[in-house]
Design a protein around this nucleic acid. Structure first.
Lengths: 219, 219, 219, 219
DNA sequence: ACGCCCGGGACGCCCCGTTGGT
DNA sequence: ACCAACGGGGCGTCCCGGGCGT
């Protein structure tokens, strides 16, 4: 046996797994950005917790901006797609689907504190960086489009009122939803968001074709 | 000695007007913060342009944070009060007043680009600085309270539907309003905000007591 | 009674007493400089406690350096003169006088902490500012000269040993004395200074002409 | 792409030698601190001159304070140990060793001008920073202890007078030594230090056990 | 290819000694 | 004697690359 112990890898496990390192970086970075914003996040902070070095970061990302874009592409956009786009595409009844999504919104204090990552980034960076803005606006676009399409399909199937304008309504829904999350974040009060969810659900129900009726239980 | 006339103060006018200097600083700072956020604003940028020096800034404000608080207290809060609180307090019919306020919302490209200062600051700083968060949340509180009070008075007078919950509705209005501004800022598209104003006005009209009539053409 | 109350002077008393203001400034400044050194003292700190403004300070002193020089001239030098020069000039027996002075050295914790103002300033500023150095060195010169003169007179009167070199001995005394104060300041230990005083007194006694002698044995 | 050869590192030699960079920084910093004190030394001055940048400094030291502590640990303390502690530990005759050390004290004008680094730092920082004070006081403690131990051993061997109190005497020696260096620095006069060395040596000889005799005691 | 250590500058905020106008 | 304004840095620190091993 040698007298020099094997030089410790950063921790145990993971002997040089590039994809893994990249993912770690990305999620650590996302977490901080979600908390403190893009400008409020410094690279060293991201690096501190993960067993990754500056060199590794720059190997995977060209710079802070590139990291930011990767966060949007690989973390933020997928969240929107997984939460809204895909479920709506698969849904039989768009109203039910929308209600389910809204009601699944976390009321966890930490989540309330941090707000919506998409909206946070968008508000912070839209006036500062056109590339970011475009990318983030596109995600909002996808989101609104997904809702509008679902509503359109629902209208065709007669489960959504005929006088509902899909595009306008989709935007309205996104606006109220983001608005409530913003207010709750500012107030740091989950009850505000809770109330918002209720109001949104009520509104969503009002979009239903009147057939079955409007016995519709407003809370 | 030369005959050179006394060198002009930084610009014309107002030699040694403390209040004036403070105002200049404040508005220049507000403008930049509105554009780029608090963290994205550096003091030197504020200084260039206003004919004021670092020393003057330090004379009026203890530091960047104090400047930020002053911006909130002396610029942001008054805007909310002037635009929403006071008009609503004075209004005969709250619905009319709310509609008027919403319709007066600027569609100017620059305004759309920058979004709502209150919401911007709140989203950026709430998770970072509890003192800021509290102060900004209080302004949101005033805002919601002003609307709720007006609705309550309107309900008493019979111009607002009896089944309207003033507090919940007030929050709903603020949420949609801020939500649309956020979306428009992200999309950098005044038409989005235009559509939002229309939707909000429609919603506001739906709050009216049906008495005289709800022929009221919902779009 | 009149309706206009007498405009309050800063506190009670002292209605615009220039000399008084100057003295206040000087002593406040001296206190801070003694504590934190000249470079470690900022003007605002000096101003804070006293009811004096920056303008007043600049009325009395041309600048920070001038204030420093005034401290040396009007506070530090007088201390040395009052404590050492004058008593020695008046003394019948120089040895007794020196012993009395040394023994009167304060063992108060605060005094130990701060050390000797003359030495502090001298050590700090000698390499940085020739004007200061010259002035402070002159005070050391006065000090050493006062001791040397006293020893010379004592030798003439036969109370000091004939083999004592007045100048060399005077410098030796000042060196040991300052050395002990420095060590005690560093250790922040009054006992160290206490021990030093004892050693110095022992040394001073050894300078006495042996004649009549050492029936004495004063501690 | 051009054929320009790789741009030479700042000077010649040593590409990326961390230890070397650290040493450069440390010695440059020590030199300035020795000259102008800790507060009188600014980082940029240290940087200009050593071909090192802010980034490198920040890489090696957490800040100005950490740099200061490193100066004490890695430069000042070793000087004391090399000059006093080690020689005394190795010495056969402590008196001879002490005399040799004292006589080796530099009379170079620059050295006189700057004074003793240990004492300089101690006088400047003791009242300002407890961590520094403790560290510096410990070095003084080592120094006095080294002398006291040597004297104790000398007494045991009969080369030091039996009535010598090792601890008290050690402190006395350090006090006189530092006192003379301070006076010489203030006067900026090597002759004063020269005289001091002579006086100290005389004193040291007086500590010798009288065996061989005191034919000595020459000025 | 992947990752690490070391280094590079550019500012950002803070704060300080100073000067005019009143 | 005072209030307001003035700029000049000081320290901290952030975003970012090069040289080397593995």
């Amino acid at each position: 046996m040698s007298t020099t112990p094997p030089p410790f890898r950063r921790s145990t496990a993971a002997p040089r797994d590039a994809a893994r390192t990249r993912r770690q970086l990305l999620h650590k970075a996302f977490a901080h950005v979600h908390e403190a914003g893009f400008q409020g996040t410094d690279l060293d902070t991201i690096l501190d917790g993960s067993g990754v070095t500056k060199g590794a970061l720059y190997h995977h990302f060209a710079g802070k901006d590139a990291l930011g874009h990767a966060i949007v592409d690989d973390v933020v956009a997928p969240i929107t797609r997984d939460t809204w786009v895909r479920p709506l595409a698969d849904a039989a009844d768009p109203i039910d689907a929308l209600i389910a999504i809204v009601e699944s919104t976390s009321l966890d204090a930490e989540d309330v504190r941090r707000g919506c990552p998409l909206n946070n980034l968008s508000q912070e960076l839209s006036p500062l960086d056109e590339a970011f803005r475009t990318k983030l606006a596109a995600i909002f676009g996808e989101w609104r489009h997904a809702i509008a399409s679902a509503l359109r399909r629902g209208r065709a199937r007669g489960v959504v009122r005929a006088d509902v304008d899909p595009a306008e309504t989709a935007t309205f829904i996104v606006a109220v939803y983001e608005g409530y999350i913003s207010l709750a974040k500012s107030a740091q009060d989950a009850r505000l968001l809770q109330s918002g969810k209720k109001q949104i659900v009520k509104y969503l129900k009002s979009l239903r074709a009147s057939q079955a009726a409007d016995h519709d239980a407003r809370t």
